[in-house]
Design a protein around this nucleic acid. Sequence first.
DNA 1: CCGATTATAATTGCGCACAATTAGATTGCG
DNA 2: CGCAATCTAATTGTGCGCAATTATAATCGG
Lengths: 152, 152
Amino acid sequence: MAKKPAPVPLLQLDNQLCFAVYSTGHAFNRVYKPLLDRLKLTYPQYLAMLVLWEQDNVPVKDIGERLFLDSGTLTPLLKRLEAAGLIKRTRSVEDERQMLIALTAQGQALRERAKAVPQGILAASACTVGEMAAMKNDLVALRDRLNAALGD
Amino acid sequence: MAKKPAPVPLLQLDNQLCFAVYSTGHAFNRVYKPLLDRLKLTYPQYLAMLVLWEQDNVPVKDIGERLFLDSGTLTPLLKRLEAAGLIKRTRSVEDERQMLIALTAQGQALRERAKAVPQGILAASACTVGEMAAMKNDLVALRDRLNAALGD
DNA sequence: CCGATTATAATTGCGCACAATTAGATTGCG
DNA sequence: CGCAATCTAATTGTGCGCAATTATAATCGG
């Protein structure tokens, strides 16, 4: 008779923190989608806009460090935002290697409409602001430890 | 003089739980990469194998429900696992709509080598098992609330 | 000042992720 | 039975995400 493999708790899907993170990320995406469709943004594009609404006219590198993304991801994404008229891409005069990203008037104006988005997310999460902050802090601490482990 | 926009706390990147989830997911991926490269698996492929190691010979739909993925993602992923010799795809005889996914001997054997993976992740996370379980439970609860909000 | 090194983006190629559509099988209702 | 509604996968098209490579600019050491 065929031997059934012994269960290995650490290998079980539902025991894995990484899968909880992975699947929660997808769930967030699905909740964001209808809210962001109204702004004609994808979620990663929305993140780039969040960065620019905090600090305008920054090199691609800075956006990448903030979002943990590289130019392979950001270059086409930013080109799409430029095609949509939300940002302007110009080479820095002081350092011609840098591509500076600046909001257009349209890009700045979108910020007003974006203010409604976090409310919708908060509602769908059905969390208190305190609970969300606690989870966020735990996750950021974990993320930083994971990123630190990469350096070794 | 140009008016600086008033900061909107809920719009700030570092206040957002979703970004913590998103960026932690990427950090996990980067930690998994070298471990999974040895098994010649990507992370989503590893998840599919975890499902199959728990229950063999299941339809694509069941894998999709378990991983929250649809056939648009799974069909090409499973074809690659088949090309790698880890699984076999066959149409169900009882219901010809279903494509049944079964492990090959090679796919079953890979489970032994995969046992080392969670250890590496645990080390990189620098968490106790208890902390990981607590975060996992919080995230799963959040995920379920987000998914429930989609139904409305 | 020149050549090597380093830094910044862009490009290419591959693998997800998902919406929308299509194809074929099954079920259910009159 | 007959046909509509439903179900399961596959397909197509778009947009990430990242490794690897390339191109160009800046910097550094002799």
